[in-house]
Simulated scan of single mutants.
Amino acid sequence: MNDLTERVGLIAGYGVLPLEFVRSAKKEGFTVVSVGLTENSFSLLKNITDNSVFCPIGKPMEIIDYLKTQGVKNIGFAGKVDKKIIFTSINEFDEHARKILKNAGRLNDVSIMNQIIDFIETNGLEVISQLRFLKSIVAQEGSLNQIKIDEEDISEFRNYYQITRKIADLDIGQTVVFKDGAVIAVEGIEGTDATLYRSHELGVEGSVICKVSRPSQDPRYDLPVIGLDTIDVLKKISASALVIQANGTLVTDYDEVMNNSEMAGIKIYGLSENLKK
């Protein structure tokens, strides 16, 4: 029936991506056992997964023990986790979580996630690629909605993409806001939405937002994601376009995202790493 055991685990942050994961896995006939890292994600998942529990991110061994008792061998990650929790709630982290952070050294996303995955797999579970169940919502190349895009637009988008790629390669941020060739804002620890609002506070309208993956992106976690919430923010800041990495960005609620962006006059364009399109 599939290439995994018939039970799959999901460690879920907030947002709609975990719902997409569950729908796809269920469609293939999997039993899905979920761990909600937030009360919100637990609330959303408890009625659509076969078994579910709420467990905060600072208690990794409890998460592993629960999944094992449910007969799970393979797990996936989906959804957002607010990185600020590392600084605001570290007193609530258990000894295992503290050791993970210590071993990470640098508190960037890649270092932390690599240590988390190493901890999980050392304790007998295998972390699968997000694309195993989310391949159907990966953005393709070219114009993704029906708004006309000309060669001048494409040239501008390519330039912005190259700049954003260099910034992401330095592990600074994955999202950059541009206007008329100038960099207006670069994503930091505050996350994408806060970065976009910060750019708008400068009085900038008609901006172009570019979002790419990290260098050597590990498909087991944190692929770039856009969705209806993204479009809502773009409308609020009066953005003109969103440029994303083709074949490496997930689009939740795809049809609604494209319809809503068209109605708002926001261009959405997918660029591949070779920048041919």
Results as ranks from 00 to 15, higher is better:
Ala241Glu: 00
Lys211Arg: 12
Gly188Cys: 10
Gln217Asp: 03
Thr122Met: 03
Val233Ser: 04
Ile120Tyr: 07
Leu17Thr: 12
Lys166Arg: 14
Lys267Cys: 04
Leu134Ala: 09
Gly76Val: 06
Gly270Leu: 12
Ile231Val: 15
Lys99Leu: 06
Val233Ile: 14
Val35His: 02
Glu201Ala: 13
Gln162Cys: 11
Leu107Ser: 01
Thr192Lys: 15
Lys83Phe: 13
Thr69Ile: 10
Lys73Leu: 13
Val225Ser: 04
Leu196Glu: 06
Thr88Phe: 07
Arg165Leu: 09
Asn145Ala: 06
Ile189Gly: 08
Lys68Thr: 05
Cys210Leu: 01
Gly105Ser: 04
Ser207Tyr: 03
Gln140Leu: 09
Ala97Phe: 02
Lys148Ala: 07
Gly105Asp: 01
Ile244Ser: 05
Pro219Ile: 04
Asn260Ser: 07
Leu228Val: 14
Ser207Phe: 00
Ile100Phe: 07
Cys210Glu: 07
Gly29Glu: 10
Gly206Arg: 06
Ile226Met: 05
Asp3Gly: 05
Ser213Met: 09
Lys135Arg: 15
Tyr221Met: 06
Asn2Ala: 13
Cys55Asn: 08
Asp50Pro: 09
Lys166Leu: 12
Leu44Asn: 13
Thr122Lys: 12
Ile167Pro: 03
Asp171Phe: 14
Val8Ser: 03
Ser240His: 10
Ser207Ile: 02
Val32Ala: 12
Val243Ser: 04
Tyr14Trp: 13
Ile237Val: 13
Asp253Ala: 12
Asp193Lys: 10
Ile137Gly: 09
Ala139Cys: 09
Pro224Cys: 10
Val204Ala: 08
Val33Lys: 12
Ile147Val: 04
Gly79Leu: 14
Val72Asp: 01
Gly29Leu: 12
Glu62Cys: 03
Leu234Glu: 01
Ile120Pro: 00
Thr192Cys: 11
Asp50Trp: 05
Asn47Ala: 07
Val177Asp: 07
Thr175Ala: 14
Met1Asp: 08
Lys68Asp: 09
Ile149His: 01
Asn145Arg: 11
Glu95Asp: 11
Asp3Ala: 10
Leu19Val: 15
Glu126Cys: 00
Asp253Leu: 04
Gln174Ala: 11
Ile237Phe: 02
Ala241His: 01
Lys26Phe: 10
Gly105Thr: 05
Lys80Ala: 15
Asn74Cys: 09
Asn40Gly: 07
Glu92Cys: 06
Ile167Cys: 09
Ile48Asp: 11
Leu67Ile: 09
Thr69Arg: 15
Glu256Lys: 13
Leu170Lys: 14
Gly71Phe: 10
Ala12Gly: 11
Val33Ile: 15
Ile85Glu: 11
Ala194Gln: 15
Thr49Gln: 03
Asp65His: 13
Asp3Tyr: 06
Ser238Met: 10
Ala264His: 04
Tyr160Trp: 00
